[in-house]
Each structure stands twice: as structure tokens, then as C-alpha cells.
Design a protein around this nucleic acid. Structure first.
Length: 509
RNA sequence: GUCUCGUUAGCUCAGCUGGUAGAGCACGUCACUUUUAAUGAUGUGGCCGAUGGUUCGAAUCCAUCACGGGACACCA
């Protein structure tokens, strides 16, 4: 475990310190300000005649990131969560022997120290702390990665996120923004009168989306449980129960592939709003984005890769219209099944001829429109064939009261007026069960409990889901979901441990 | 799942068409009281991702596997 020679060296230093009566893992932290505050409060030192104020005294702490020893004096850069500070350590300001025997020999980059002293500005103009007292708080026995390049290997960054966070300030920034987004989202919906609720993460029947679930087992009840793939059906039960506006921000789990936009566990907000329609959802979504941008202090035109997204330019267009106006698909083709198939084939796009018109229109959208939707665009009026959970439009029953929001060529939200006819819902579940029996293992299972809930009457309701991870990617200009997840899912490293050899023994039997 | 690129010192990377391992940072020792990736001198450090194969000889060529990146497919 600690066989590395650098680690051995540092363990020895820690032991020497113990022998000298210094606890390398002190629990006596006394800091009275953060680095950010120190720098703010003392910004006036620059103006002073001798550029120092020995009457002020501060105690700050942080991890040593740079260490420049120059004989009888040293410059040390320490970093806490709020920022980086240069401290000046001179032999003659410390107790006899401390500088030469303790500081120079046993304190190094990576260690966490506490320093006390007064503010001053160096010859090169940097506001620093002149140390009169220095204490080791935590000895790091593992050396930090290289100080200039830091750690760039993505695998190491994801597997040892703590190292990534120590070395890369911009990574900390990304996760601070993520936290702000979640906090602001919560506040936005609370201010609108929505009630935050928590619904089960372990479902007896996986529902609310078409996806393969993770399965676990409840010993006490002797039954299998499914990690939820979506909270939808429980949130709607709450609307039945009389709550008129609910939301939940939490994890969903899907037992599927992983790539730049998919992680087996991901965070979404779903909200349901009684006596409203998808039109109201479009309005509140615009308001939500405006609220986020205001409170995150982001410019309304944001770069994303080589794109520029204007968050003040929200567009709204029905799906069929988008095919011709944005996708450039000829007008006479988009409502004709055979012509769409021919059109796709001409362009060497694989097409399943068994698809119905709605599905083919969806194909056209995916091929010719989606990637062109850079500024936020609500695509509305989805064909009913590709919207199994949405309510039909009363006047045009072939389309649904639904929209998806696209930004930077990617889907960010999915919303619709909810289906609240229990008989219709029951029939749709039955259709799904048939598909499941025919081998579609992502088809929805029958949920009679949910149908029963609907049969008591669910007020007309609109509901929406927003993928928080993808939203954060957009706001932080990150292009992999792993860069907005603190601990993304990774394959285990192949260590030939006891568990595996047991498995092998099993196989041999 | 398919294709493709990668895996060499604690970290960042060289290493050509095969001849037994290199740099910078870090670390050790020495010098240095205003440095900014401090500097100068000097030294230590490697089962070249794993396993097979080809060869007199493999970090290098071939095969398989593991892990990772990217693209595509699938999936909301």
C-alpha cells in the first residue's frame, strides 16, 4: 500500500516530527479568516507607505501548492477553498531552530499548514502574509502531481476526483456552478408555490420511462425491487392526492450504456402542475432560464464548443414545420410515409420500413433538424405515435400536447399535458406489455396501482422533466457528462483480489 | 456493441524502420533573506498496462485481454 519510495520518505518525515513533539495530524486548527477575506480586507496595504501593517494579525490555513526555499527565507503558496495566498517565511521570525530543522526538512508541497502573521506587499507587488507562527496541521504522505501540468489523465481525474479537485481550480468552479444550479432550481420552484417531495427510489414496478432498470432484492419482504428509472408515476399519484404543484430533484438509474451524455445514475428535476397545460410550461421554462442566468451572473450569449447560444432568443415551432423550415425537407414529403422512406433512402440513411408516419417524422427530425437547433427551441405538437405518455390535442388527435426543448443541438427538457384518462392509460400499458412479451425489454410494465390512482381522477395536469447534468454541461461548456459528475461511473480496475478468485473457484466447480 | 487512438519514473511527456531506458517537474544533498512553474550545482528513481508469440535480441513487430479517450450505433 505505501511501498512507493516517495511515500516512504514522507512517512519518515512524519515520524521524525512526532519524535520532535509535533503531531503531524494536529486537531488544533485556529484559523480566523479565509484567504479570500484576508486578501479583501488587506487590499489597502498596497497604498501604505511601507506596504505593511504589523499591527494586524491573521491566522489562515491551506494546502501548500508551491514552495520556494531561498536560504534563510522562503515563499510558500497555500490554498484554501476560497483562494491562494503567498506567505513569506523567514528564519529569524520563527523560534530558534524551527526554520532549519522543522520547516525546511519536514514540510513540503501537499501538506496542510496554518500560519499567523501580518499583511505586507512584496517587492513584486503581491499582497502576502508575513509569517510569525507556522504550524503543520496535516502531513500529506503522498506527493502531489506535477505543479505546472497538474493532472490531465482523464482516467485518473475521474477515479481520483479528490486529486483533480486539489490540482484543478476550474474543476472546483464547475461543481460550484452545479451546486448553484440545483439550489436555484429548488428556490425557483418553491417561490412559484411548488412543493418539494421525495418519492421512492426503490420501485416494485419500474415505470415512468422506457429503460432497463437496476434490480435489487429486499430480504425482509423477499421481493425484488427496481431502482427507479423515473419518478413520474409517483409524482402524478400526488397530483391525484390533491397536491397541485410538486417537484422532485433527484437521481434516476438506468441500466444502459455509458457515453459522453449518459451515466447510469443521473439527476433530473420533474415537476407537475395541476390545471395547467404544456403552454404554461413553455412560459415557466423561459422564466426559469432567465432566473438561472440572472442569479448565476452569466452572459445571455454563451459559448458551447464552437457554437454560440443566445439564451434570449427562445424559439417555438411545431415539429412538422421544423422539418421543412429548419431541416429543409420538401413540403410534399413530410406527411407521406412512402415519400419519407424514399427520401431517407436517397440519402443513405438506414430506415426501418415498418415504422409508422409519426416515427418516420421523428427520424426526419433526428436526421435533419435536431443538430441545427442552437438557440433554445421548443419543438411542439409531437406525433402521438412517439409520445405514449402525452395527452392528445382535442382538435387534432394525431398530435399531442407536448414539447421538447433543444439547446445547442441537444435535448434538454421533455414536457407535456399529462394523460389523465384511466381507461386510455390502461390500454396503453397493455400495448406496452404486449411489446415486452415480444422481446422489447425496455417496454413499460403494467402498473395497475397507478391506473387505479388515475381512476379516482387526476386534475388536468402538465408535467416536465429537465436533465440537470446536461443543463450544467451547457452552462459550464463541458462536453462530457463525467465532467459535471463528481464521481462518474467507472469500470472497476482489474485487481486480482480474493473475491475474483472465489468466483473462479465457483466456475471451476 | 463496432471502429479508432492511447497506456513508459509520483506527475507531464520523448523514445525513428527491433540492440537492453531519457527529459522536465517532484524527491535527496549543497548554496542562496523579496521569489512567482524561483535559481545554480549534484544525486536517487523504471517488471515500458497484462499475457502469449515472432526473433540471437522486444518499450518498439504480431495476437489476445484489461482499463481509458474519441467517433458511430443503441437509448431519453
Amino acid at each position: 500500500m505505501f511501498s512507493n519510495k516517495f511515500i516512504q520518505q514522507r512517512i519518515e518525515k512524519a515520524n521524525t516530527l512526532r519524535e520532535a513533539g509535533i503531531n503531524p495530524y494536529s486537531n488544533d486548527a485556529q484559523r480566523n479568516t479565509t484567504i479570500e477575506k484576508f486578501l479583501n480586507v488587506n487590499s489597502d496595504i498596497e497604498q501604505m507607505e511601507n506596504k505593511r501593517d504589523e499591527n494586524r494579525n491573521y491566522t489562515v490555513s491551506g494546502r501548500i501548492k508551491f514552495l520556494r526555499i531561498m536560504g534563510k527565507a522562503s515563499f510558500v503558496k497555500i490554498e484554501d477553498e476560497s483562494g491562494m495566498l503567498q506567505v513569506y517565511v523567514a528564519r529569524d521570525n520563527l523560534p530558534e531552530g524551527f526554520y532549519n530543522n522543522i520547516f525546511k526538512k519536514h514540510i513540503e508541497v501537499g501538506d496542510i499548514i496554518e500560519v499567523s502573521g501580518y499583511p505586507f506587499v512584496t517587492g513584486k507587488g503581491e499582497l502576502s502574509l508575513h509569517v510569525t507562527e507556522l504550524k503543520l496541521l496535516t502531513k500529506a504522505i503522498a506527493p502531489l502531481p506535477e505543479k505546472f501540468h497538474g493532472i490531465t489523465d482523464k482516467e485518473v481525474r475521474y477515479r481520483k476526483r479528490y486529486l483533480d479537485l486539489i490540482m484543478n481550480a476550474e474543476v472546483r468552479k464547475t461543481f460550484q456552478i452545479r451546486s448553484r444550479v440545483i439550489s436555484l432550481t429548488r428556490r425557483f420552484f418553491e417561490d412559484k408555490g411548488f412543493l418539494e417531495v421525495e418519492t421512492p427510489m426503490m420501485h416494485p414496478i419500474p415505470g415512468g420511462a422506457n429503460a432497463k432498470p437496476f434490480v435489487t432484492h429486499h430480504n425482509a419482504l423477499g421481493v425484488d425491487r427496481y431502482l427507479r428509472i423515473a419518478p413520474e408515476l409517483y409524482l402524478k399519484r400526488l397530483i391525484v392526492g390533491g397536491f397541485e404543484a410538486v417537484f422532485e430533484i433527484n437521481r434516476n438509474f438506468r441500466n444502459e450504456g455509458m457515453d459522453a451524455t449518459h451515466n447510469p445514475e443521473f439527476t433530473s428535476i420533474e415537476f407537475y402542475w395541476a390545471y395547467k397545460t404544456y403552454k404554461d410550461l413553455i412560459a415557466i421554462t423561459k422564466e426559469y432560464f432567465q432566473y438561472l442566468f440572472e442569479h448565476l451572473d452569466l452572459p445571455t450569449i454563451l459559448p458551447y464548443g464552437d457554437m454560440e447560444v443566445n439564451f434570449e432568443n427562445f424559439q417555438e415551432i411545431p415539429l412538422i414545420e421544423s422539418l421543412t423550415k429548419i431541416g429543409g425537407v420538401p413540403e410534399d414529403i413530410v406527411r407521406d410515409k412512402e415519400k419519407i422512406i424514399a427520401y431517407l433512402k436517397e440519402r443513405n440513411i438506414d430506415v426501418n420500413e415498418a415504422m409508422n408516419l409519426g416515427q418516420l417524422q421523428g427520424e426526419l427530425f433526428d436526421e435533419f433538424v435536431e443538430e441545427k437547433l442552437i438557440d433554445p427551441t421548443f419543438i411542439t405538437e409531437y406525433p402521438v405515435e412517439i409520445s405514449p405518455l402525452a395527452r392528445r390535442n382535442d382538435e387534432h388527435p394525431e398530435i399531442t400536447e407536448r414539447f421538447e426543448l433543444f439547446i445547442a443541438g441537444r435535448e434538454i427538457a421533455n414536457a407535456f399535458s399529462e394523460l389523465n384518462d384511466p381507461i386510455d392509460q390502461y390500454e396503453r400499458f397493455k400495448g406496452q406489455v404486449e411489446a415486452k412479451d415480444c422481446g422489447d425489454d425496455e417496454a413499460h410494465a403494467m402498473d395497475t396501482d397507478f391506473v387505479e390512482a388515475l381512476s379516482y381522477g387526476m386534475a388536468p395536469t402538465a408535467g416536465q422533466g429537465i436533465g440537470i447534468d446536461r443543463l450544467v454541461m451547457l452552462l459550464t461548456n463541458e462536453h462530457s457528462i463525467r465532467d459535471v459528475l463528481l464521481f462518474p461511473a467507472m469500470k472497476p480496475l482489474n485487481t486480482e483480489d480474493a473475491c475474483e478468485s472465489e468466483e473462479e473457484k465457483e466456475e471451476e466447480k
